[in-house]
Design a protein around this nucleic acid. Structure first.
Length: 235
DNA sequence: GGAATTTGACCGTT
DNA sequence: AACGGTCAAATTCC
């Protein structure tokens, strides 16, 4: 992933130092993840993997916040919630677009006109939350190389949970990066959030197969690189 | 057969 | 009119 800002400030900048530390943390988390994969007991292993995933996500999120502030100091007030802003311009140059463009984050408003809480995260693992999502749409976005996938909380009907999630692949690097936009907080959180340590017979819910395939690339990559499926346990 | 996904139509916003 | 987000009928999967 391309982590360097266009014009790195002097390394004496505290913010730059923080970014360096976060990058180191990300690498260490990845190392830890590999170690954790070796835990023999399935339950403990899965729980540990999930925790490491949370750590990675937190790191990515913090990195995105710091980097976006350095690259776009003017956009931070746009967000209605603590936000990892990432753009489609400097970190992902669309191959099929005439120019790299800065993604404009629009205010999203509910019916009463109030701004909706939005959180954007750039991550390699969009499946690393433990919620049950149901896909309800997919759109090709102008100048974007990959489609945007639309998900809503699997309990949106039963429990009126308003949480939604958009997922869009941002790069064809390995591992690919996904921009995850989270809209609204889960109201089903404590009661219905899937437990990472619960046992099998889960229902497979999210599949990023298409999102992670670029239009003309073929079998030069292992299949596993193309498959990003969410698996959730029942409750 | 039920649940989840796909995909074109529809609609609101810009 | 174009674009992005959602709906919902059709289809696929388990």
């Amino acid at each position: 992933m391309t982590l360097s800002p266009p014009q790195p400030p002097p390394s004496s900048s505290p913010r730059h130092a923080a970014i360096q530390e976060l990058r180191r943390g990300t690498q260490l988390a990845e190392l830890l993840r590999q170690q954790v994969e070796l835990i023999p007991e399935p339950n403990r292993r899965q729980a540990a993997v999930v925790n490491v995933g949370e750590i990675s996500m937190a790191m990515e999120s913090s990195l995105s916040i710091l980097q976006s502030e350095m690259e776009h100091p003017f956009v931070s007030e746009v967000m209605a919630a603590p936000t990892a802003y990432s753009d489609g311009g400097s970190t992902s140059r669309e191959r099929n677009g005439p120019v790299a463009r800065t993604r404009r984050v629009r205010h999203r408003r509910g019916r009463d006109g109030a701004e909706l809480p939005i959180k954007e995260i750039l991550t390699e693992a969009p499946e690393n939350d433990h919620f049950h999502w149901r896909k309800y749409g997919e759109k090709n976005i102008l100048y974007a190389e990959y489609p945007r996938l639309y998900y809503k909380c699997g309990y949106s009907d039963d429990h009126k949970c308003p949480a939604k999630k958009y997922v869009q692949q941002q790069s064809n690097t390995y591992p690919p990066l996904f921009l995850v936009t989270l809209i609204n907080e889960h109201t089903c959180d404590t009661l219905f959030r899937d437990e990472p340590s619960s046992s099998s017979s889960g229902s497979q819910v999210l599949d990023f197969t298409k999102a992670s395939l670029s239009p003309e690339e073929d079998s030069s990559m292992p299949v596993s690189m193309h498959r990003y499926s969410f698996s959730y346990d029942g409750y």
